[in-house]
């Protein structure tokens, strides 16, 4: 059904005035954002600006308390079945990988397709092997996460998320926990993914990645979107002083 409701001009993600509190602290103070199918969005900003919190509200790892979030025609509310439906359509990649340490790489990738999507094991494994090929580590299928490098683990995590064949991919600082020499191998996979037309929301400070593949960029600060625009606008013609200051801080190194 959802395919029919999503014509090209209708956003696949629709957020209206999303607000979120942790106790008395307001982490999100009214975020509105529409994302079209196939768009690559980069979200950046200082720590504590709410960018991770926002991306986590999109698959309800965090509950928003005010406003509206509609993913692929399904509104996120307390209805558990809607939440699980949305999560099936949105893959997420975490800063700390969060692979399941007691399962090998293949099992990490096939667990959800087999039990949530109810695919036969053979089909799930075939797709998993294709994905491992795609992220460049087909030979690691039977190793355990603990035996892999950080970059390899994050690529497995991407494969795990893709195995559910989601319509949207969320990346929450996917390279922040990696050693410098491993950042590139993960970014390469993400660039490749962006080229296939996947809808992606990426929280990152990798400005090279943003410049290369982002369609739009959002600068977050203190729970608000301070500025948004194409990478060209943001890098060469930022309007807000806070954006300029932040960019100068992260780009001077």
């Amino acid at each position: 059904m959802s395919e029919q409701t999503n014509t090209n001009d209708q956003p696949i993600i629709r957020c209206r005035d999303v607000q979120k509190w942790f106790g008395d602290f307001q982490a999100l103070r009214g975020i509105s954002m529409d994302v079209q199918i196939g768009e690559v969005i980069v979200i950046f900003g200082p720590s504590g600006s709410g960018k991770s919190t926002f991306i986590r509200t999109l698959n309800r790892l965090e509950e928003h308390q005010r406003g509206q979030i509609i993913i692929d025609g399904i509104e996120l509310s307390h209805d558990v079945r809607n939440i699980e439906k949305v999560r099936m359509e949105t893959g997420m990649v975490f800063q700390s990988f969060n692979l399941f340490p007691h399962l090998n790489v293949l099992q990490n990738i096939t667990l959800a397709p087999i039990w949530v999507r109810k695919w036969p094991k053979a089909k799930a494994e075939e797709i998993a092997e294709q994905l491992l090929e795609r992220v460049g580590i087909p030979e690691q299928a039977h190793k355990f996460p603990g035996q892999l490098s950080g970059g390899q683990q994050q690529r497995v995590a991407i494969a795990r998320a893709l195995a559910m064949q989601p319509k949207i991919m969320l990346f929450d600082e996917p390279t922040s926990a990696l050693d410098p020499e491993m950042i590139k191998e993960v970014l390469d996979v993400m660039v490749e993914l962006a080229k296939t037309g996947m809808t992606m929301l990426v929280v990152t400070h990798e400005m090279g990645f943003a410049r290369g593949v982002a369609d739009r960029m959002f600068f977050f600060d203190e729970g608000l979107i301070v500025e948004s625009g194409t990478p060209n606008d943001i890098f060469h013609n930022p309007k807000e002083d806070r954006t300029k200051l932040f960019l100068s801080q992260i780009l001077t190194h």
């Binding site: 698959n59 790892l61 558990v80 999560r87 099936m88 969060n98 692979l99 959800a112 949530v116 559910m164």
Partner: peptide, 14 residues
């Protein structure tokens, strides 16, 4: 770790 539960939720597990 809580991240394990989040990762499992994120792939749609109940």
């Amino acid at each position: 770790p809580h991240g394990q539960i989040e990762a499992a939720k994120a792939v749609g597990m109940n």
